[in-house]
């Protein structure tokens, strides 16, 4: 008889482990990835591939040679960062910029703070925002979708949100902008992803399929995405009711830009979101509000990345003050 194992209870463990959770996120991102391959062709494949590989390689090198610890790339978290970062980039971005973005995401965004679990900001967003500020021209030159092609050449154009922002600046009403020649989108296009924009954000439907998968697999809870959506509907809806000529309607806000990608896949990042359901609701409502403020009154057409990063910074504060209610607590 071998020696018996002696340890405290519990003696059985549940189904979750970090790798499984990360693998589920990757699976949830697949539909949106395939849509991007279809519409943006070889360009998208290159950006996604380079991004995932560089993130994994940077994490491995930093852990092995700089920190001299055992590399933990097998937990797949670097793959998730790489995928999400690539989803936030224009499909026609030069490859060297993708690599720089990955270096900032993994090196600065994640490893400087001690690796997985210790980073205050979402690493992929750190990489994305760095690129957006450092190279605004490349980062806002959007390839327009076509059907799958192996050609690296792509026609470029603006995203729906950018066209509207530009038009509003010129004093046009939304009705007039939507009737202009530049504007060729309808709601169905935004649902299936036939619009210009970041690689992975274009198809609302594909992202929502992934959302359902994440909920079913219990990877995330509904709290953050749903409160973001509700808060966007409430705040943009109020503005829309006040003046439909100047303000975009809520459905358009939800379906365009990085709204769904951000709400479902980035705001819910475990490490950088609150620990309690109540905290998650505050965090989600705040992100929704801030996104609408930036989109409507700021100079950027998009606001999701900045809103998420800003609320990432507030998470420690939320965690400190919002505690779960103790069983049988006496007030």
């Amino acid at each position: 008889m071998d020696k018996l194992i002696i340890s405290p209870s519990p003696h059985v463990h549940g189904e979750f482990n970090t790798k499984r959770l990360m693998r589920d996120v990757i699976i949830a991102l697949l539909p949106a990835m395939l849509v991007s391959f279809w519409f943006f062709g070889i360009n998208a494949i290159v950006v996604v591939g380079v991004s995932v590989i560089s993130c994994v390689v940077f994490e491995y090198l930093i852990q092995k040679y700089l920190l001299k610890t055992t590399p933990t790339i097998s937990d797949l978290s670097a793959v998730v960062t790489g995928l999400i970062l690539s989803f936030n980039l224009p499909p026609n971005l030069p490859v060297w910029l993708v690599v720089v973005g990955c270096f900032i995401a993994i090196g600065v965004g994640k490893m400087t703070f001690g690796g997985l679990g210790n980073n205050p900001f979402n690493p992929a967003l750190v990489g994305r925002v760095f690129l957006l500020i450092a190279r605004p021209v490349e980062m806002t030159t959007w390839a327009l979708p076509s059907t799958f092609s192996l050609s690296f050449d792509a026609t470029t154009g603006a995203t729906p949100l950018a066209i509207i922002k530009e038009g509003l600046k010129n004093g046009q009403t939304i009705e007039q902008i939507k009737e202009s020649a530049d504007y060729t989108f309808n709601y169905l296009d935004t649902l299936f992803g036939h619009i210009g924009g970041s690689l992975g954000e274009v198809s609302a439907l594909a992202l929502l399929i992934g959302f359902v998968y994440l909920l079913v697999r219990k990877v995330i809870t509904w709290h953050i995405p749903v409160t973001i959506f509700l808060s966007v509907i409430i705040f943009s809806g109020t503005l829309f009711l006040i003046n439909p000529d100047r303000f975009i309607d809520p459905v358009f806000h939800l379906l365009t830009g990085g709204m769904i990608l951000g709400a479902v896949y980035m705001a819910t990042d475990y490490v950088t979101s609150p620990m309690t359901p109540k905290g998650m609701i505050i965090y989600g409502a705040g992100i929704g509000l801030l996104t609408i403020i930036i989109r409507t009154f700021g100079s950027y057409p998009e606001g999701m990345s900045f809103a998420i990063l800003f609320f990432n910074a507030l998470v420690p504060l939320i965690n400190k003050y919002i505690k779960p209610k103790l069983f049988g607590e006496i007030k």
Partner: peptide
């Protein structure tokens, strides 16, 4: 009987959700 290898806390909050006493 084997316990898995311990890794970094990823702050997934599953323990907070699982605690029947409302602890963290």
């Amino acid at each position: 009987a084997k316990r898995g290898v311990k890794s970094n806390c990823i702050r997934c909050s599953k323990c907070v959700a699982a605690c029947p006493m409302g602890l963290q």
